[in-house]
């Protein structure tokens, strides 16, 4: 488990100073609007994949601490990773939220959510942006084939 104070610092930092916030007009980015019907988060995510590498990720919208921090963290975490690595990291993250065995090593700051499962009704906040990113990466793989 990650230290509580460190988790607090990471969550507050990413919520108050979200990374990669603001969408790009560049048409090589794929965009997805994630509006949850069960909560009030409303987030758009963008992913740019080139030659099997996740080159850039961006997001914007309104959301709670958990949705903003998790999306912000993943835009940093996945940048520069190969599509395969990125999808594997997302799977590790889902496993963590589901209380399954996972490898915390490569999740870096995303480990701040290692006790999110305690607030079961908020897990969807922790996945709204990440699921959008995942979908965009999978789409780009399909299109490149």
């Amino acid at each position: 488990m990650m230290d509580e104070n460190l988790k607090r610092t990471i969550l507050l930092d990413h919520y108050s100073h979200p990374r990669n916030k603001g969408l790009s007009d560049d048409p090589t980015y794929r965009t997805l609007h994630m509006a949850s019907d069960s909560c009030i988060d409303d987030i758009k995510v963008q992913v740019k994949v080139k030659d099997g590498i996740v080159e850039d990720l961006r997001f914007d919208g309104v959301g709670c601490t958990i949705s903003f921090a998790s999306t912000s963290i993943f835009t940093e975490l996945l940048k520069g990773k190969s599509v395969k690595e990125a999808l594997a990291l997302i799977e590790e993250y889902y496993a963590m939220l589901d209380e399954k065995t996972y490898n915390p090593e490569d999740l870096e700051e995303a480990n701040a959510f290692d006790t999110l499962y305690k607030q079961a009704n908020r897990i969807k906040c922790g996945t709204i942006g990440v699921k959008g990113i995942e979908e965009l990466i999978r789409e780009s793989v399909k299109n490149e084939k």
Binding site: R8, L11, L12, T65, T115
Partner: peptide
């Protein structure tokens, strides 16, 4: 904000 984050 600090208290709200503390919940998680």
């Amino acid at each position: 904000l600090d208290k709200c984050v503390g919940v998680f």
